[in-house]
């Protein structure tokens, strides 16, 4: 009968891994936290913008592309959080808890397992972030009376950004043994280290093309083309600080995101495939 039966093809196992991971996510408080946060952000934005009204919004943001450029950019913030919370322990849990003694003795390549989990994390986190993104698009349509074609490009970039964040998160998750530490480090890195590094580089007039937070700016570029370099002065008298703000082009932003995605997933695969379960 089944004895000695061959394990299914990698693609089938990939789908098994993804299916069970999605099922696992939707039963966690984290999932409801992320979805709730995105829904809350959407609700607050809706309440605020509807309160301001169409005339007020037009006075503040001018055109629909400018409105969308300003508001859809917040999707990146939610993308960071959803990636960190949903992917932060996707790999580290295998090494820091006894979970690995169950899943890693199954006849499945670790790469298949990781990619299946990655797909699950992407679907769930992208779904949550999409709540906010499409709420903003719907508000734009309501307040300005239309949609712009660039919305699809911007949404594509939001999804690409999600892939990039998850790539980085999976890499860090594979590097850490304790799930909680992994999530904390990821949140600190994405919310604190990257923005501070970005600011420091701007003040040193260095283009931070290697930071993912820099690439986020490309989402707005889908709607409104900003100059690549903007000089901004801050402070008074001798304490004036001049910042050089660089804005990535669409291609540059997308390139950085793809780079993070490929390097992150590649690194995570390498670490996960070779790491020992020695605890």
């Amino acid at each position: 009968m089944m004895a000695g039966a061959r394990a299914p093809e990698d693609l089938d196992q990939f789908l098994v891994a993804a299916r069970f991971e999605v099922r696992s996510y939707v039963r966690t408080y984290r999932f409801y936290g992320i979805v709730g946060l995105c829904a809350l952000a959407s609700l607050i934005a809706s309440a605020y913008l509807l309160d301001v009204g169409s005339a007020g919004v037009r006075a503040e943001w001018g055109t629909l592309p400018e409105f969308l450029a300003a508001w859809t950019g917040y999707s990146g913030t939610l993308a960071v959080l959803s990636a960190a919370l949903l992917g932060g322990d996707a790999i580290s849990a295998e090494f820091g808890t006894p979970a690995g003694y169950f899943s890693l003795v199954q006849p499945v390549r670790r790469s298949t397992l990781l990619l299946g989990r990655f797909l699950a994390a992407f679907l769930v986190s992208a779904g949550a972030v999409s709540i906010f993104f499409f709420t903003i698009v719907a508000l734009g349509a309501l307040l300005f009376g239309g949609v712009v074609g660039a919305t699809a490009v911007a949404y594509g970039l939001v999804l690409l950004l999600q892939l990039a964040f998850l790539g980085l998160v999976f890499l860090l998750s594979a590097a850490f043994r304790r799930p909680t530490i992994g999530i904390i480090v990821i949140v600190l890195l994405l919310y604190l280290v990257f923005p501070i590094a970005n600011l420091a580089l701007e003040s040193a007039h260095i283009e931070s093309w290697f930071l993912l937070s820099y690439a986020e700016g490309a989402i707005s570029q889908a709607f409104v083309t900003s100059p690549h370099i903007t000089e901004v002065g801050a402070g008074r008298g001798n304490a004036t600080l001049t910042l050089t703000i660089y804005t990535p082009s669409l291609a540059q932003g997308a390139g950085i995101m793809v780079g993070y995605f490929v390097a992150g997933v590649g690194g995570a695969l390498a670490l996960f495939s070779h790491k020992e379960v020695s605890g």
């Binding site: 089944m2 000695g4 039966a5 098994v16 299916r19 069970f20 099922r23 808890t97 169950f102 003795v105």
Partner: peptide
């Protein structure tokens, strides 16, 4: 591993899964 069933240490599968799902998970990979 496709011809091996292994019980090492004290495995803890997804705690939010039911017993049936835990068995189905292993069956799915096999």
């Amino acid at each position: 591993l496709e011809r091996v069933g292994a019980l090492i240490e004290t495995p803890e599968p997804y705690p939010q899964f039911t017993g049936r799902e835990v068995i189905e998970y292993a069956g799915g990979f096999r």
